[in-house]
Structures are given as structure tokens and as C-alpha cells.
Amino acid sequence: MTPPPEAARRDRFTRLPDRVRLQDTVEERPATVPDPARDVYDADRWLVPYCL
């Protein structure tokens, strides 16, 4: 037997839901896979197209 709609609504809305901890709402992960060739800097690279 199902409870009347008023009782079901009262049971559902008479108390607040359980609190969610902030630690449970945040997920940290890298946005992309780091590319080791991206951060390689050659200080003399600009010499090739402009000085030769």
C-alpha cells in the first residue's frame, strides 16, 4: 500500500538533505598531458631565420 501523496511529500521535504563536504565536491586532475617538447627553449633559434 502506498502512502498518500501528502505524507510522501511531508517525509521528503521536512528535513534538509545531508551536508556534502567541500572535499567531496572538488576533483583535481591535469587538463592535458604535459608535453616535454613544449617547454624546450633554444635561445639561438631566432638567429637562423633572421641572421642568415
Rank of each mutant, 00 (worst) to 15 (best):
M1H: 04
M1Q: 06
M1C: 07
T2E: 13
T2F: 03
T2C: 07
P3V: 10
P3Q: 11
P3A: 13
P3Y: 02
P4V: 09
P4L: 02
P5Y: 04
P5K: 07
E6T: 13
E6W: 04
A7M: 06
A7G: 07
A7W: 00
A8I: 07
A8P: 00
R9M: 06
R9E: 11
R9W: 03
R9P: 01
R10E: 15
R10L: 09
R10F: 06
R10A: 15
D11K: 00
R12H: 07
R12I: 09
F13C: 05
F13M: 05
T14F: 04
T14A: 10
R15H: 08
L16V: 03
L16Y: 04
P17Y: 04
R19G: 07
R19L: 06
R19K: 06
R19C: 08
V20S: 05
V20F: 05
V20T: 14
R21D: 15
R21T: 12
L22E: 14
L22H: 08
Q23M: 09
Q23N: 12
T25K: 09
T25E: 13
T25Q: 14
V26M: 09
V26H: 04
E27P: 04
E27F: 03
E28V: 12
E28Q: 06
E28C: 08
P30A: 11
A31S: 09
A31W: 00
V33C: 06
V33W: 03
D35P: 02
A37K: 06
A37I: 01
A37P: 03
R38P: 05
D39Q: 07
D39C: 06
D39A: 12
V40G: 00
V40Q: 00
V40E: 02
Y41M: 12
Y41I: 15
D42E: 07
D42N: 09
A43S: 12
D44E: 08
D44I: 00
R45F: 06
R45E: 14
R45T: 13
W46N: 12
L47C: 12
L47M: 11
V48Y: 03
P49A: 04
P49D: 08
P49N: 05
Y50R: 10
Y50A: 13
L52H: 05
